[in-house]
């Protein structure tokens, strides 16, 4: 069997996808079994709320790590896992939000509205979730064709803001021990920092490349970086 890491066969990629799919389901399965067996501690609703939210954030960061990993390793096929990872991040966020609406608040719409308006950590968490919806809805090939690659990409750049909101949501929730939120914030800072750095490199490269056209020689040209 030819196990080329750089260019795996279609079958290998399908197998990797299947493994990642099952791995992404495991935390949900563990919570469901714990709920059934009543082993989630004295406050199981709090446990599943926390766990689903934290997994949504982890999966979001993993999704954002795909591009850097791909660039550093040269394993370009990793890109083919990104959609699934992003959709799992959404699935956990959806579960997190549903648990909040249903088990935590029992559809007490007044209390929910007050929470969203009045409590900053819920305001940003809610914003992050709402902004994820169009991304999940357009995570299919049909939507990419329909929107066109450029517009699709512009829309999906909102994931950077969503990730910042998600980390803030966690940070503003904790009372005093900011250890975990700080860890996620640092990871996100690296992931976003890399993109900023690459963008800067690209800008410099464009500036340093002499314009090819002969008729422009000795004329002043202003280069505007592409937005």
């Amino acid at each position: 069997m030819n196990l080329s890491l750089k260019a795996p066969s279609a079958g290998t990629i399908a197998a990797v996808k299947a493994v990642v799919f099952v791995l992404c389901l495991l935390p949900a399965l563990e919570l469901a079994l714990g709920w059934q067996a009543n082993t989630l501690g004295a406050n199981p609703i709090e446990t599943i709320t926390r766990a689903s939210g934290e997994w949504a954030l982890r999966l979001l960061l993993i999704t954002l790590a795909v591009t850097p990993l791909r660039r550093f390793s040269g394993l370009h096929w990793l890109l083919r896992l990104r959609r699934m990872l992003g959709l799992f991040a959404f699935a956990y966020a959806f579960g997190h939000f549903t648990i909040y609406l249903w088990l935590d608040q029992f559809f007490d719409w007044n209390a929910i509205a007050l929470d969203i308006l009045d409590r900053p950590f819920i305001t940003v968490g809610f914003a992050a979730f709402v902004l994820l919806i169009p991304l999940a809805a357009t995570s299919n090939s049909f939507a990419i064709r329909r929107l066109g690659g450029r517009r699709w990409q512009a829309l999906h750049r909102s994931v950077y803001a969503i990730a910042i909101f998600a980390v803030l949501h966690f940070w503003w929730l904790v009372k005093a021990d900011i250890g975990r939120p700080l860890l996620y914030a640092s990871i996100l800072a690296v992931l976003l920092g890399l993109r900023g750095w690459w963008r800067e490199l690209e800008r410099r490269r464009q500036l340093s490349v002499p314009p090819p056209a002969k008729h422009l020689e000795k004329k002043v040209i202003r280069l505007v970086p592409r937005q």
Partner: peptide, 19 residues
């Protein structure tokens, strides 16, 4: 009296589902 993190209008009694 409102609190920025938790509503103080309701509470969950440990062991109960509804607030």
């Amino acid at each position: 009296v409102r609190h920025p993190r938790w509503t103080q209008a309701t509470e969950r009694r440990i062991g109960e589902l509804r607030k």
